[in-house]
Design a protein around this nucleic acid. Sequence first.
DNA 1: TTAGTGATATCC
DNA 2: GATATCACTAAA
Length: 185
Amino acid sequence: MAMLSYEFFRRPCLEVAHDLVGKLLVRRLPDGTLQRLRISETEAYCGEEDTACHAHKGRTKRTEVLYADAGTIYVYLCYGIHWLLNIVTGEEEQPQAVLIRACVEAPGPGRLTKALSITGDLNRKSILAQEQLWVEDDGFQCDVVTDKRVGIGYASQEDQDRLWRFIMNQMKTPVESMIFLTKLI
DNA sequence: TTAGTGATATCC
DNA sequence: GATATCACTAAA
């Protein structure tokens, strides 16, 4: 079971977002218990030029973390209720990140953080430290389809239309579903 | 369809 | 200091 490296996250966010689909998000709680959820959906937010990206308006107290080195965790509170998990990608000083939008076992960005007890405490920590949160590759392979990003009505039409959301391909037949579930175990 | 919830940014 | 805005979810 290989933990994903700095080199994996240092690539452009579109590549990282695509390749994170199917990987295992691993959480270690304070009491030592481990949880593993398989990532099924991500979105890429690609720097100051991307009007959907939080860093679109440059550095602020909140977006400072996006300028950090690849593998830095960005967690923020959305709508006063939901913690959303992102991982910073690319070269340092490039404010880009991948939003983890869903896992197979916990669909929805707010629901997966709830399932894994992820809060703002993890903001600015590293996903490479293998302490409280990291990502593993267990060799699982799957098809990935793209779609438009969700909930970014404030962005330019051009950026809203970009296919920067990456989703584990849905199974079309019962046979495919059986094969899929077998691979999960 | 809409309420709920609070940090952040932006405007006085 | 006040206000508007939100990378969402569950309930109705």
